[in-house]
């Protein structure tokens, strides 16, 4: 192991030490947000792989997270719970009796979502044009229609309740770190170069002998897998899911994260996830009633979303590069930064 690898491992250890400390000392609320940060980091890194690295604008997260959530939820609920819950129409028997522990349920949630990614990507990536965005947007709406109507599988509008609370800070961050490693390794390989080539100039990528269809598929299916797993983690964190839960706001938040961090930069995404998730919590203030200097301002529900959308538009127009642009944080650049500062001080 060289010096830089040791530093990286050390920072991950430090991260887990912080979480371990927080688990005992921070408020439940704060730890809940840190759990969310972990899950969102995995989601945002996946989302950035398809949008930022491969350059294919997509709006899949809420739909894919919903699939992962439903699959995982159905698998971790006990047959007895399911029997009690499906009061309108009984559940399909083989699903009713399917039951397993959390980890395999998450994996299956991820795999099912990856398969859906394959099914969606197949028609879209065969043609040129920006159809991915509209197809995934439509998919997010359609999955809601479908989960509302396939009552014997999803329990329709009633949703699924009382999921076991398996998701802990360790599950969230374990997956986050794992997803980051997989995705960054992918990006730093010939596959990643091919993805960036597709992003920069698709025709030239084809002329280099790159099978652009499969390269886009690889990025999309990988993202889908982790989004499915993320859905499973969220399901067990929130413990109830229903057709209306995973709205477009989820996708929108992730879009803001990857834009703020820099399209194509995974380390930027990590930074931005923390900033945006905590920022979003702080922004809740604008939705609550407040008293400033004796003046009563009623809370404006939904104001957060307006602020978010204005923010996104402004960033796109004035600060398209985000925090990191397409660059990645590296130890070398950090050392160089300090060296330069020292020289400057002299």
């Amino acid at each position: 192991m060289n010096k830089k690898t040791i530093l990286t491992v050390l920072s991950v250890v430090l991260l887990f030490l912080f979480l371990w400390y927080g688990d005992g000392h921070l408020s439940t609320y704060a730890m809940r947000i840190w759990e969310e940060v972990g899950i969102f980091l995995m989601l945002a890194a996946s989302y950035n792989l398809i949008n930022g690295v491969t350059g294919q604008f997509s709006l899949e997260p809420n739909g894919f997270v919903a699939i992962g959530a439903y699959v995982t939820a159905i698998l971790i609920l006990t047959p007895a719970q399911k029997e009690a819950m499906f009061i309108i129409t009984p559940m399909v028997p083989w699903l009713q009796n399917l039951h397993m522990s959390f980890f395999p349920a998450l994996i299956i949630g991820g795999l099912v979502t990856a398969f859906v990614g394959f099914l969606l990507g197949f028609p879209v990536f065969r043609v040129r044009g920006d159809y991915l965005a509209i197809v995934t947007l439509g998919f997010g709406l359609t999955i809601r229609v479908v989960s509302n109507n396939t009552v014997p599988i999803t329990n329709g509008a009633l949703g699924l309740k009382g999921l076991p609370t398996y998701t802990t800070i360790w599950w969230c961050w374990g997956w986050a770190v794992f997803a980051m490693i997989v995705i960054m390794r992918m990006v730093n390989s010939e596959f990643g170069r091919a993805m960036k080539a597709v992003r920069d100039d698709e025709d030239a990528a084809i002329a280099m002998g790159i099978n652009t269809f499969w390269i886009k598929m690889t990025a999309f299916i990988t993202a889908a897998f982790f989004e499915g797993v993320g859905g499973g983690l969220l399901a067990s964190l929130i413990t109830i899911i229903s057709p209306t839960m995973f709205t477009f706001f989820l996708t929108f938040e992730l879009l803001i994260i990857i834009v703020v961090g820099g399209l194509g930069s995974m380390t930027g995404t990590a930074l931005a996830t923390i900033v945006v998730i905590w920022g979003s919590e702080i922004l809740r203030v604008v939705e609550q009633p407040m008293d400033i200097f004796g003046l009563h301002i009623p809370g404006i529900p939904g104001m957060r979303m307006v602020v978010f959308s204005v923010l996104l538009i402004l960033i796109m127009i004035f600060a398209r590069e985000g925090i990191m642009g397409q660059k990645e944080f590296s130890w070398d650049s950090l050392f160089n930064f300090f060296k330069k500062n020292k020289v400057a001080q002299k």
Binding site: D130, A133, L255, M305, V306, S309, L312, I313, M316, I317
Partner: peptide, 10 residues
């Protein structure tokens, strides 16, 4: 495209 989504959401 991202901006267009932003306008829509706005």
């Amino acid at each position: 495209l991202i901006t267009a989504i932003g306008v829509s959401f706005f």
